[in-house]
Amino acid sequence: MSESAPTNIESGDNVRSLQRGLRLLQAMNRFPHASVTQLAQRAEIPRSTAYRLLETLASLGFVRTSSGEGYRLTRAVRTLSDGFIDDGWIEPAWQEMLRLGREIVWPLSLLTPEAGTMVVRRATHEFSALSIDYGMVGRRMPMTEVASGRIYLAYCTPEERRLIMALPDAYANRAVPVDTTLLDERLAAIRVRGYDTRVGGVVEKTGGLGVPIFNDDRVIGVLSLIFIASSLDVARVVAQYEAPLKQTAARISAEAVRLMDAPSKVT
């Protein structure tokens, strides 16, 4: 006897509830101090549904309630991602980020290109007393509007850059019209100085200083330092942190080359 196919899965309430629950978890990750009403708005679900889902998640141990604080994520949410296997060079990069983060205190992000955007792969915000951002991992950034994206565009091949820039704005998450002449000038400057900066923009109240990570002559990612824009000016950030960022990026690059060039073991 063949196993019967599940019913009411593809288009029923089960799938809709799962989608809403995942959006709610994402909202809690991004906005840990938000109220239930705010979480419902972020997840684009009714407030009553948010309450029901939060109670279900609490019964499963993924969230907790605290007097005066509402609902908060628990460490159990980490079990949802522990099985994810990242690119081989990401884990050594993470260890370098933790080391540098302890030294400079400001939070760091590691971003790589994906589908015409820059995606935050790792971030040390939770370990930094100076962080004002939460839930950054997995967030997609428009390449032309952040330092990491402009760095990638500066060092990728002209053909790849042309294809990325030809993507529709909605697909590439671009919200600001691109002046190609100014962009080309900025990309040329990045190739000379080896870094780029951002103040405000897609992530309000913060600034960033980014440097490239290479595998030989191919850019594979960007290491960025995130600072509170109102507390430091860009010139001071560059003067104080350009060197340690580039040194760390160089170590990550060397390890990436070693790992990517190593022959895979056949068992």
Rank of each mutant, 00 (worst) to 15 (best):
V266I: 11
S17T: 14
R52V: 11
A154N: 07
E160Q: 15
R174S: 04
G12L: 05
A189R: 15
T157N: 06
F62T: 03
W106K: 00
I9L: 15
Q240D: 13
D196I: 05
G101N: 12
D216T: 12
D217P: 00
R64E: 10
R30S: 14
V237D: 00
D196G: 08
L53R: 05
Q95K: 12
I220F: 03
T74F: 07
D216M: 11
A115E: 11
I226D: 01
F227H: 07
V237E: 02
A250T: 14
D216E: 15
L80K: 04
Q240F: 05
S128E: 11
V146L: 04
E55A: 13
P177H: 01
P244I: 02
L57R: 01
R139E: 11
M260L: 15
V77I: 15
R174N: 08
P244A: 08
E159Q: 15
P6C: 10
Q38S: 13
G101K: 03
G201D: 00
I151G: 01
G210H: 03
E185T: 09
R42N: 08
R72L: 14
W106R: 01
A43F: 08
A27D: 09
I226Y: 01
M1K: 09
V15P: 02
G68H: 06
I90M: 12
G101R: 02
L60C: 06
F127G: 06
L259K: 03
L54F: 01
G61L: 09
R30D: 08
T37V: 13
G12Q: 07
K205T: 13
G116S: 06
V257A: 13
G201K: 01
L183Q: 07
A250P: 04
L223T: 04
R258C: 06
L187T: 07
T65H: 13
A235G: 09
Y171A: 10
S264M: 09
D87Q: 12
M260Y: 01
K205A: 14
G201W: 04
A256I: 03
R258A: 15
R150I: 03
V203S: 03
P92S: 06
I90Q: 09
A172P: 02
L100D: 00
F214L: 07
T267C: 07
L73R: 14
E10N: 08
Q240H: 13
A76W: 06
Q41N: 14
V219R: 00
A188P: 02
E55I: 05
G12C: 05
E103P: 01
P113S: 11
V15D: 14
R64Y: 04
L57F: 10
G208H: 04
S35Q: 10
D179T: 07
I220N: 05
L80F: 06
E159F: 03
G116E: 00
S2C: 09
L163P: 03
G70N: 09
R162N: 12
T56E: 14
A76S: 12
